[in-house]
Simulated scan of single mutants.
Amino acid sequence: MPTVGTLVRQRLADQRDALRAAEAAVRAGEATGLHDLRVAMRRIRSLLATFRPVFDRSVTEPLRAELKDASGRLGSSRDAEVATDNTDRLLEDVELAGVDEDAVAGLRARLRLDAVAAGDVVEETLDSTRYAALTLLLDELVTHPPLVDAKAQRDAVKVARKRVRHEARRFADVAATARADAGAGGDGAERGGQDPGSSAHRALDHPAQLHEVRKAAKRLRYAAETARPVDEEAMKPVVKKAKAVQSALGEHHDAVMTRAILRHLALDEAVGEAAAFLLGHLDADEQRAMVELEQRAWASVDDLQDTLDATL
């Protein structure tokens, strides 16, 4: 009978190796390296949080705090990178008739400067003594996992499924809060027949709440991934449906970041009236995209909830 201690020990080792590989990819300039590095960090943090009862928290909580700090700094760079790429793509796709080409070229130059600044933050983070200490602490945890012996010897399937149910309840609570903040309860947007993105202001009024739903979906997905080696049939659909929620809300978050850059550029007096007018149109396009993405996200949330109700 596999124990939960064996299960989490293997997951921790796998994600430590993934972090090392992703860090090497970042340093080598590979395009997906930063994304993969942050995913490995999140999976480790989620593992230590979801399976907190199995670990000695006095050892794991400091590591979670350091991972959160590093991931946050890298995340700001990643957001800037994605939003910059999206804005550059929008500038390529937009109809440029009547717009000063020099103004557009100036906008692209500004975006490149932002991208360079974001890259500097990544380099500074990975070369810091704090990050070096983090990797040493992670290696120590993998070599000597701080497990609570009695709890670590319990049946892996039972404990893992219990922890996934815990994350499923957490996800449902966060989603319900976001739905209420969207004004769903008062205008016929209840689950099972809602049109939560039917007005543009909803997608704009609560991006932070939607981002929390996305993070809760990630944590649920990672918990199910950890449990999957010992509970494949139950966890496979949970992973799939949680990933769909994460994907839709990830695109929504990217649109939020892109709009922030568009507005920042538009407020710069140096860009000129023609470019500011163009940026306003691009901002409106992204606003419409956010509404559609929120609709898709809520449909994915309901689909995930149905799967959880049927599986767990």
Score class of each variant (00 low, 15 high):
168 A>T: 00
170 R>D: 11
171 F>V: 05
172 A>K: 13
172 A>Y: 05
174 V>F: 00
174 V>N: 02
174 V>H: 04
175 A>K: 02
176 A>K: 12
176 A>H: 06
177 T>S: 15
177 T>H: 11
178 A>K: 04
179 R>L: 09
184 A>W: 14
190 E>N: 15
190 E>Q: 14
191 R>A: 07
191 R>E: 10
192 G>A: 13
195 D>G: 11
195 D>V: 12
198 S>F: 13
202 R>G: 13
202 R>C: 08
203 A>P: 08
203 A>W: 10
204 L>S: 10
207 P>L: 01
207 P>E: 02
209 Q>C: 08
209 Q>D: 10
214 R>A: 09
216 A>E: 03
217 A>C: 04
217 A>T: 00
220 L>F: 03
221 R>F: 08
223 A>P: 06
223 A>V: 03
226 T>M: 02
227 A>P: 10
229 P>W: 00
230 V>N: 00
230 V>T: 03
233 E>R: 13
234 A>D: 08
235 M>L: 00
240 K>F: 07
242 A>C: 03
242 A>M: 01
244 A>D: 10
247 S>V: 08
247 S>K: 13
250 G>Q: 04
252 H>P: 08
252 H>R: 11
253 H>R: 15
254 D>E: 07
256 V>F: 01
259 R>T: 08
262 L>S: 01
263 R>L: 07
266 A>Q: 07
266 A>T: 05
267 L>F: 12
268 D>H: 04
269 E>W: 05
269 E>P: 08
